[in-house]
């Protein structure tokens, strides 16, 4: 184990104290928020059902119509009445429309407007991942680890400051704790989930030895950006660069179970704390990115890189005055809205 040089004596005492007096967490039923999510979006499924129902009903209606018609013929034939057989449905429909032209026009316009609006709304939802929570091979709880235990985000997602990827934790990171934490009564199935980590790491929890038979864990990615978007965690998270709190984009993760994409509304509730800016567009859309780039001020003093940049700006006072009119220089004003910042 690495030396914990940064801990003070009091903190060490507190840890030991906690370890002595730890109370087992009461067994709870499976939290509903942790139920393994669906792979697809619910909306799409519902739409499919509606279409299917419409088709079924149409078939029923047409069949009923046909039966009715047959019956009418039979009745007419019996009563010796002459029926207009040669008038087609098309002609009948045409006549009906002409008769009720006011109604049909209004209906058509209404249908077109609402339908079009609905289509547009739906269109904008395509590829929007807000509130997306895919199922996972291990029913991991952020609530337990990041919430109750207070483990820092960057302990597990440790490449966030160094790389464009925050990184899904590698199994060896899990094993830092789960070499010793081999069972849990946090909730039903917790021990089985830990066993899955051990299986992946090739760890025998009985003998506390590694067997060497490893098998990687296949996670389902929650935060998906299109292939032509290059987002760098390092640029945003690193204290010398963006220095943005994880919550700005990921919400209050310590309250989540499985990893999920947050929603704008949830994050806006956190606004004001830790420099979080309220936004309006759906999460992980380009509009949402640009909105923040338009609001967020760049701290030109925190790094020599920005100091140099600021120095150069001073030689163009007109430009500097223009961009600092609102007392802040935003990401956008330094080029944060330019295509090639993210698309290349």
């Amino acid at each position: 184990m690495t030396a914990q040089g940064h801990l003070t004596n009091e903190e060490i005492d507190a840890i030991l104290d906690y370890a002595d007096n730890v109370k087992p967490v009461a067994k709870t039923a499976v939290a509903s928020s942790d139920v393994v999510g669906e792979d697809g979006q619910g909306e799409g499924g519902a739409l499919l059902w509606i279409i299917l129902l419409i088709v079924v009903f149409s078939v029923v209606i047409f069949a009923a119509r046909g039966v009715r018609k047959q019956l009418a013929y039979v009745v007419a034939e019996k009563e010796g009445e002459e029926i207009e057989l040669n008038k087609s449905i098309k002609e009948k429909l045409g006549e009906w429309i002409v008769r009720n032209w006011k109604f049909t026009t209004i209906a058509f316009v209404l249908l077109a407007v609402t339908g079009g609006a609905d289509l547009m709304k739906r269109g904008f939802q395509v590829g929007v991942y807000a509130d997306y929570k895919p199922s996972q091979p291990i029913n991991y709880s952020h609530k337990l680890h990041a919430g109750e235990m207070g483990i820092d985000c960057k302990y597990c997602h440790n490449s966030a400051e160094k790389s464009k990827h925050a990184g899904i934790p590698t199994v060896n990171v899990c094993m830092n704790c789960h070499e010793n934490v081999v069972e849990s009564d946090y909730r039903l199935g917790s021990t089985e989930n830990i066993a899955k980590i051990h299986a992946a790491a090739g760890y025998d929890s009985e003998t506390r030895k590694y067997t060497g038979n490893t098998s990687p864990i296949v996670w389902n990615k929650a935060h998906n950006l299109p292939d032509h978007v290059f987002f760098s965690h390092s640029q945003h998270v690193n204290t010398k660069t963006g220095n943005i709190d994880c919550k700005q984009c990921h919400g209050n993760v310590p309250t989540y179970g499985l990893g999920r994409v947050s929603t704008t509304e949830e994050i806006n509730q956190l606004a004001g704390t830790d420099g979080i800016i309220p936004l309006t567009k759906p999460l992980l859309t380009m509009g949402w990115c640009l909105e923040c780039h338009n609001e967020k001020a760049v701290d030109l003093t925190k790094s020599d890189y920005y100091k140099e940049l600021h120095g150069r700006l001073k030689s163009r006072p007109d430009f500097l005055r223009k961009i600092s009119e609102d007392d802040k220089i935003t990401v956008r004003e330094l080029g944060g809205w330019e295509c090639a910042k993210c698309h290349y």
Binding site: D39, G40, Q41, E43, G44, L47, L48, V126, G127, Y129, Y132, P134, G167, I168, P169, T170, V171, N172, V173, A200, A201, G202, T214, S215, P216, I217, V218, W219, N220, K221, N224
Partner: peptide, 18 residues
């Protein structure tokens, strides 16, 4: 249209021992 409604599930496999 149907294809674009479906959200593809993207797999991600981290190292076992990085």
């Amino acid at each position: 249209t149907l294809a674009s409604c479906e959200t593809p599930v993207i797999k991600s496999i981290p190292y076992v021992n990085k």
